[in-house]
Design a protein around this nucleic acid. Structure first.
Length: 288
DNA sequence: TACTAACCTGTACG
DNA sequence: ACGTACAGGTTAG
């Protein structure tokens, strides 16, 4: 059994419960004082009380985005009283930086689904296709590698509960394995270019592309517009961002995104996270 | 180009 | 109980 220990001094300003329970990650579970999470080929154990992060891999990703100046970012997104209120109610809510492949597959699997179901499906995928490891005295399954999912039998993907998304997942994994989707390139390039690449993948539209970019590809101006965010805009921003129906067309989506970034600025994605969290909590939606 | 229905699957509601 | 609506959308027509 291997394990690496890191100290983390920022837990006083990060609220892990808020951050994990805000719809951005799915493969996390809470122990007594410790959160356990799968991030690609890594397993993390986080104990806020002792400022400890333990990881399965030697050089874990900086999932907490410690390089971000959160004070400055929050100041920057607080453009109106709605966001101000959300920030006030959920102090310490942060965007997490995820393993890109896991994030990409997770959100493809999320389409037209709900959080409980998405979690179940992703756990099934890991159990069936991921490597089993022992860590912190427990068993975990790592997230499957692109090559494994690329050559998976569709029947095995279906058995995980993916439904019609099974072929999306397989095609998406093939695109990564073959190099036509290159996450390192997508990280470096701009929002528009990355988005154009992602929406070419069968099963990825505007919303899912925005999730992947915001949560794993350093595009903090991505602002996923799902049903909840449409509700938020209709409820609090009907003057600023008028929307007629509950579903929006591709063109409307793009137009809205431009206006949103114009309003909230380059860290618009952070504002989305606070607004999403706020509205889901108001409606008492479950996270786990 | 713009709008609608269909889509796997589980659960909540009447 | 059993049918229907809906869920963190996308695609095909």
């Amino acid at each position: 059994m291997r394990q690496f220990l890191y100290k983390m001094n920022k837990f006083s300003e990060i609220n892990l419960d808020y951050s994990i329970n805000s719809g951005q990650v799915f493969l996390w579970e809470k122990g007594v004082n410790t959160w356990y999470g799968i991030n690609g080929s890594d397993v993390l154990a986080i104990t806020p009380k002792s400022n400890q992060i333990r990881s399965f891999s030697e050089n874990p990703m900086d999932i907490f985005r410690q390089g971000d100046n959160s004070k400055k970012i929050i100041q920057s997104i607080t453009k109106d009283k709605v966001v101000k209120n959300a920030v006030k109610h959920f102090p310490g809510l942060r965007l997490l930086r995820q393993d890109p492949f896991q994030c990409y597959i997770s959100f493809i699997a999320s389409s037209n689904s709900n959080i409980q179901k998405i979690r179940l499906v992703l756990q099934n995928l890991c159990r069936k296709f991921g490597t089993k490891v022992r860590f912190d005295g427990r068993e975990f399954y790592l997230f499957p590698e692109p090559g494994i999912l690329a050559k998976a039998e569709e029947s095995n993907l279906l058995a995980c509960g993916l439904g019609y998304r099974a072929k999306f997942v397989k095609e998406a994994a093939i695109a990564v394995k073959s190099g036509s989707i290159d996450f390192e390139y997508l990280k470096k390039t701009n929002y528009q270019t990355a988005k154009e690449s992602l929406v070419k993948i069968f099963g990825i539209g505007n919303k899912i592309a925005d999730c992947i970019m915001l949560f794993s590809l350093e595009k903090l101006d991505a602002f996923p517009l799902d049903r909840w965010m449409i509700r938020v805009l209709q409820k609090y921003y009907s003057k600023k961002f008028p929307i007629s129906s509950k579903t929006i067309t591709e063109k409307t989506y793009e137009k809205l995104h431009n206006e949103i970034v114009h309003h909230f600025g380059p860290y618009a994605g952070y504002s989305q996270q606070f607004l999403f969290k706020m509205e889901r909590e108001l409606n008492e939606k479950k996270w786990l």
